[in-house]
Design a protein around this nucleic acid. Structure first.
Lengths: 195, 195
DNA sequence: CCTACCGATCGGTAGG
DNA sequence: CCTACCGATCGGTAGG
């Protein structure tokens, strides 16, 4: 991306994200995609090798965004509660900034061929591990309840930040940071009035 | 279902749930479906009117299960925390008992034709409303924090119980009730050690 | 980037 | 429930 103008390939990927997220991978034809870009179906193959390459690229970029946002947080010294909050802020930010790719990511990765499929499940495990680690550190530090199950706690946090792809609409009253903060407040302090 | 044996139509719907959840609606051909049932593609049309009828029926049945489980709880007199817990138990139970239909429901409803599509969005709103109502009652009763936003709180609860379709595996250590209880404990009491 | 085309496969139907 | 078939559309390629 040395150009200020997006390359044709980038345009194809952007449009593919939009169409795949709206209609699904299999329900989007290469002719649909080409038409949206003002070209003929066959012309796409001057820029890409095939349909699956588009899906792989979209999914890879999305997972790389999560990686960059989250893993750099590992060595940041913050109290556990603040660290979890910051992770959630970054996580929701990635979802919000990439609503379409995120939707494709969550819905269409099952349609990848075995090797790309395996990479995604491996990636998913690494994200689970990141959050479990964060929870365990918080328990060990005495900040989080000792009776928490790190695995289930990680699932709960991931539910909150991932599910946002189904309802969040950019440009609304709440920005991604507000959403993450609201969720973090509720999760950390609980819904019930303290006894 | 006066028969103890499932009708051919029921078998078709069951198999369609499995295939649609594994491969997606559009990536499942009617010949795939027929083959799984030991028949020819054209033979399906003696039992159903078309492919979309299958999707509509799967989605309708799933939403009816949620309705039955949740709305009957409206008039049950329980403390707000226990009522939310019970709603989550029932919600996760429906997801766990119908992992395949639930997956189809969450992933494929976008592919419905306009009228069926509108019914699903309407249904989704009614589930949102159910949880918001429950939260609001809890706030008014003084059981939940006054600073909660019922809308965001409902999203958080729904995230937890819905996202289970991506990771829950029946037959594991935790039953659906355990999952819901663990989530409810964390949500109600919070992750942090009380100050 | 287009035209023209490939074989394969799609959902669905007719007639039995 | 099967055989045989319909028109439409699919992802992708050849040659320019």
């Amino acid at each position: 991306m040395t150009d200020s103008v997006k390359s044709r390939r980038e345009q194809i990927l952007d449009t593919a994200s939009t169409l795949f997220s709206e209609r699904g991978y299999h329900a989007t034809s290469m002719r649909d995609l080409a038409g949206e870009l003002g070209m003929q179906g066959g012309s796409l193959y001057a820029h890409i090798s095939g349909k699956e390459e588009l899906l792989i690229e979209i999914v890879n970029r999305a997972s790389r965004q999560f990686d960059t946002a989250l893993f750099s947080l590992r060595d940041v010294p913050l109290p556990p509660g603040e660290k979890l909050r910051e992770a959630m802020r970054r996580h929701v930010q990635v979802v919000a900034d990439n609503m379409e790719s995120a939707t494709v990511f969550f819905h269409e990765w099952k349609h990848l061929s075995p090797s790309a499929y395996a990479r995604v499940t491996g990636w998913r495990d690494s994200i689970d591990a990141f959050y479990r680690e964060l929870i365990t550190q918080g328990i060990d530090a005495g900040a989080f309840r000792r009776d928490l199950d790190p695995k289930m706690t990680a699932y709960l946090v991931l539910s909150a930040v991932n599910w946002a792809y189904t309802w969040y609409r950019p440009g609304g009253l709440l920005g991604p940071g507000d959403v993450a903060d609201t969720f973090a407040d509720m999760l950390l302090r609980g819904l019930e009035v303290s006894a």
